[in-house]
Design a protein around this nucleic acid. Structure first.
Length: 552
RNA sequence: GGGCCCGUGGCCUAGUCUGGAUAAGGCACCGUCCUUCUAAGUCGGUGAUCGUGGGUUCGAAUCCCACCGGGCCCGCCA
């Protein structure tokens, strides 16, 4: 069995034997729909003053007899290679037959940490933060698909000003021993209003911070209690999207366990001081680690956290908002250059989500919560499925609506390139047609429906594929390359876009290639194609966190 | 002021890393197809100075420079 890589290599080497000057980039996967692989002969033609026909016949001479080659064509300055779909199908099927996976070659025992979400526990999670969660969770799934041992991580800020004001607001404005997340959010908003107005709320908050770092039990209990209420709400919301986080690290634990102090000792030589506050120089900037009263700053606690991760993992990935770019650079400098950590460290940044009315702000209460989005998405899906499938029992309808809602939300947020700013619009988020999760899911359900009707049907690789079959097979075949590119660039959005492309190819196939009533030979090879398609859709959909349905 | 990111039909995007063929989709709008496997689908149509101006190249949405517009950062906040 040969993979595209091998076919590419074979073609590259054969052509290079004739024209030693060709570059690797001159032989490429075609993206314009003309063929599978193409040789761009412009340089060779120019250098050797050859006509396209002359190049074509020389290439044909060395590659024309390969058994994997369907045809070689000359178009302008291109020499186009089309491979036999049966060879591609054979490669897919050989891999899939025993394992139900394509590709089945990945395995890596390294331990990987994916830190995502890590939002301050000051209110319910909103649709801006979930961009982080969705990217992070999908990345973790992608890396897990490669066979790495993945752990997802959440760093809980329970020792900064934000949570101190959450607690201050709770103490002053919330009259409940069992507050809800919304009670706490109200108190937090009021506390922030007062701080902006310049009341003595400011000194209250500072006092809380000092008490906390000193280990004053009542303050510690109070803050933890407030944070836990918020964190429970965040986790409950995330779990509706199928997002589960494995490990939680509280900032305060790193302070009390002495991690933070040990780092100050390790950095001794690099520390400088200004009015009692300590800092290090990083990239020409003073990066403060402690305040003049000796309490730790986020930068120091985050260094401690990364050190903890470096000790337990071979590869660290942090998913961070774009506002953390500078911060990340400093973390990298300190841990790698000053503290000599050698494991791999990568950052994935994403741009912010805003509303049409402007920025979101938990502090000001200007947010769309994940819960609200989820509930509206379920409602919308339910309305649609009730019309489409009135015969289904209510329980089934609800199940479909929930799967569609989760998938649609995740897909909508994920498919956009992470460093593009996103303006959230209800009409787009709740659109269940076009380039959306239900578009993908629906095609899958139709494929499954065919298979149910052909239970026990035999299949075969066959030959003489038509245009739509060939295009679909090629797209299936490309899956491992998409996975590899996606991992290499840490871009799970590639998988979402691949799913759309694959679905379009399947829909072409579906409308043009009857299966159930086809003659035996056609039917058998189409059964095989559908099997492969369903396997890959399930695999890819799982990576982006979609819930695929057999029927909808 | 300095740094990073984004700019592709009316709206939302893919393609940019690694330059290559008539710039690929979706939404909206107009029209088509349910007595063939689920119409959340299909097919056709309208609609693009790829932010602007230079440069490199046989060839630029893609690389380089400048500028414009939007976002983010430049705290003893996180």
């Amino acid at each position: 069995m040969l993979l595209f890589d091998d076919y590419w290599k074979k073609i590259f080497e054969s052509i290079r034997a004739v024209y030693p000057e060709v570059n690797e980039g001159d032989i490429a996967l075609d993206r314009s729909g003309h063929c599978d692989l193409t040789f761009r002969a412009f340089q060779v033609m120019k250098k050797r003053a050859l006509s396209p026909d002359a190049v074509y016949s020389q290439v044909k001479e060395v590659l024309g007899n390969e058994d994997f080659m369907e045809k070689i064509e000359s178009v302008g300055g291109y020499v186009n290679f089309t491979l036999k779909p049966s060879k591609l199908m054979e490669a897919i099927w050989k891999e899939m037959e025993g394992t139900s996976r394509y590709p089945d070659i990945f395995q890596d025992p390294e331990r990987v940490s994916v830190e995502h979400t890590s939002t301050n526990p000051t209110g319910p999670i909103h649709i801006g933060r979930i961009r982080n969660s969705i990217i992070g969770d999908s990345l973790a799934r992608l890396i897990d698909r490669y066979g790495y041992r993945v752990t997802t991580q959440y760093f809980i800020n329970d020792s900064g000003k934000q949570v101190a004001s959450l607690y201050a607001g709770y103490r002053k404005f919330v009259n409940s021993d069992n507050p809800t997340v919304y009670d706490l959010l109200e108190g937090y908003k009021k506390a922030n209003e007062e701080m902006e107005a310049g009341t003595d709320m400011n000194s209250d908050v500072e006092q809380i911070l000092r008490d906390y770092e000193k280990g004053e039990p009542e303050t510690i209990e109070g803050i933890k209690k407030a944070c836990t209420v918020v964190l429970d709400s965040i986790n409950a919301s995330l779990s509706r999207l199928g997002i589960h986080i494995d490990d939680y690290t509280w900032e305060s634990d790193l302070i009390r366990a002495g991690d933070v102090d040990r780092i100050m000792e390790d950095l001794e030589e690099d520390l400088e001081e200004e009015e009692g506050a300590r800092y290090i120089m990083s990239n020409g900037r003073k990066m403060f680690l402690t305040r003049k009263d000796g309490t730790s700053l986020y930068f120091l606690r985050d260094i401690a956290y990364h050190l903890y991760k470096f000790q337990n993992f071979d590869w660290l990935i942090d998913v961070l908002g774009e506002n953390h770019k500078e911060h990340a650079g400093h973390i990298e400098y300190v841990t790698k250059d000053l503290l000599s950590q050698e494991h791999r460290l990568d950052f994935v940044f994403y741009s912010y989500v805003s509303l049409e009315s402007g920025k979101m702000s938990t502090r000001k209460g200007q947010i769309v919560t994940l819960d609200e989005l989820y509930e509206r998405a379920v409602e919308e899906s339910l309305n649609v499925v009730k019309v489409k499938r009135p015969e289904l029992p209510e329980e089934k309808l609800n199940e479909i609506a929930q799967s569609v809602a989760v998938s649609a939300i995740r897909f909508h947020i994920l498919k956009l390139n992470a460093n593009k700013p996103m303006v959230f619009k209800w009409s787009e988020a709740l659109n269940l047609e076009g380039d959306s999760a239900p578009f993908v899911m629906y095609s899958y359900a139709r494929a499954s429906s065919i298979m149910r009707k052909l239970e026990g049907q035999s299949h075969s690789i066959g030959a003489d594929y038509n245009k739509e079959e060939g295009a679909l097979i090629r797209q299936l075949y490309l899956y491992p390359f998409v996975l590899t590119e996606s991992l290499k660039g840490l871009k799970p959005e590639n998988i979402a876009n691949y799913l759309l492309e694959l679905t379009r190819k399947f829909n072409d196939f579906y409308t043009n290639c009857p299966v159930i009533n086809a003659p035996q030979e056609e039917r058998e090879r189409r059964v095989l194609i559908i099997n492969a398609y369903r396997t890959i859709i399930k695999d890819a959909a799982n990576i982006v966190g979609m819930k695929i349905l057999e029927e909808m």
